[in-house]
């Protein structure tokens, strides 16, 4: 059953009780939370995801709740817990929904060594997965969010899951994280885009999440073959420029942007090697989203 078919009341009840179980890409998660904003976040952005019944295997048990301390009355905070412990320090109460997203990123990135996990967004068109890798602020989320608004399938934002056994990119089409000016850029670029609540003053600045297209969520079980690895760089006023990057340099840059590279050892090196063998790699600078998307759509045809 899709989450959108549940009432707010029953979602709030599940979250406050035994937890709400969701199928997200290849993962089953169970979330408990007494925070109303977390329920609203799910309703706004996770409507197309399936709710699981109690008989499924749960990969990650997480909770977003205020800590039990006097502080809650002075300066309210929330904790993220996983398997019953707290991998992070508490954050201000208002950041609860974003904390869920970040915490879940961490759960996946640190416990899924069947995948090589690259700090990158992945989108797909015509069966070709494009991987946009790079440091925060390089504009990879903005670019992939814009592509998704123009009909590309969202495989994943923030992390690309490259399966070590078949070399395919596996979907986790969770909401796309947009920061600071990217929020306005996407709002202007695609007025239909649904963006959840905005949180100011986080460590990453102002943060909001864009709802993934329902069609991307519905195809969550279908992986895609990576054909291009692209390192984007948003530079105001710059030309749209795609410059080939040698495979060796691309491998090094990917390794630097890998979450679990050291946990995988040689398997990780081999996985990156196969990825670079199988793809064309580029540095990409841009400022005009329409031009960028036209170029990539052409490349994927």
């Amino acid at each position: 059953m899709k989450l959108s078919a549940s009432s707010r009341k029953s979602i709030v009840q599940s979250l406050a009780g035994k937890g709400l179980s969701l199928r997200i890409g290849s993962f089953n998660i169970r979330l408990r939370s007494s925070v109303g904003a977390v329920a609203d976040h799910l309703i706004c952005l996770y409507g197309a995801f399936n709710i699981l019944d109690g008989l499924d295997f749960i990969d990650f048990n997480v909770a977003i709740n205020p800590p039990l301390s006097l502080r809650r009355y002075l300066r309210p905070q929330v904790n993220f817990s996983f398997d019953g412990y707290f991998p992070f320090k508490p954050l201000p109460y208002a950041q609860a929904p974003a904390f869920f997203e970040w915490g879940l990123n961490w759960c996946i990135a640190s416990h899924s060594n069947q995948f090589l996990i690259i700090h990158a967004a992945a989108v797909e068109l015509n069966g070709q997965a494009f991987i946009f890798a790079g440091i925060p602020g390089s504009g990879k989320s903005t670019l992939s969010a814009a592509m998704v608004c123009r009909g590309w399938r969202l495989l994943s934002d923030e992390m690309t899951l490259l399966c070590l056994s078949d070399g395919l990119a596996y979907p986790v089409p969770r909401p796309v994280s947009l920061k600071n000016q990217s929020l306005d850029i996407i709002r202007q670029f695609s007025p239909d885009a649904i963006i959840g609540s905005i949180v100011n003053d986080t460590l990453k600045g102002t943060v909001g999440h864009m709802r993934p297209p329902d069609s991307s969520v519905e195809r969550s079980a279908t992986p895609a073959l990576p054909t291009k690895v692209i390192f984007p760089k948003y530079k105001q006023g710059s030309q749209t420029e795609l410059a080939p990057l040698s495979k060796a340099k691309a491998l090094l840059k990917l390794a630097e942007n890998c979450f679990n590279y050291s946990a995988l050892g040689k398997e990780g090196f081999d996985g990156l090697g196969r990825l670079c063998d199988a793809t064309d790699c580029y540095d990409f600078s841009y400022s005009n989203l329409d031009e960028a998307i036209a170029l990539f759509t052409e490349l994927a045809s």
């Binding site: 416990h111 899924s112 069947q114 050291s262 946990a263 995988l264 050892g265």
Partner: peptide, 13 residues
Amino acid sequence: LLHIKSSLTFAKA
């Protein structure tokens, strides 16, 4: 099995 193998992979590294 995926979780167990994931931890075995980590243990190897």
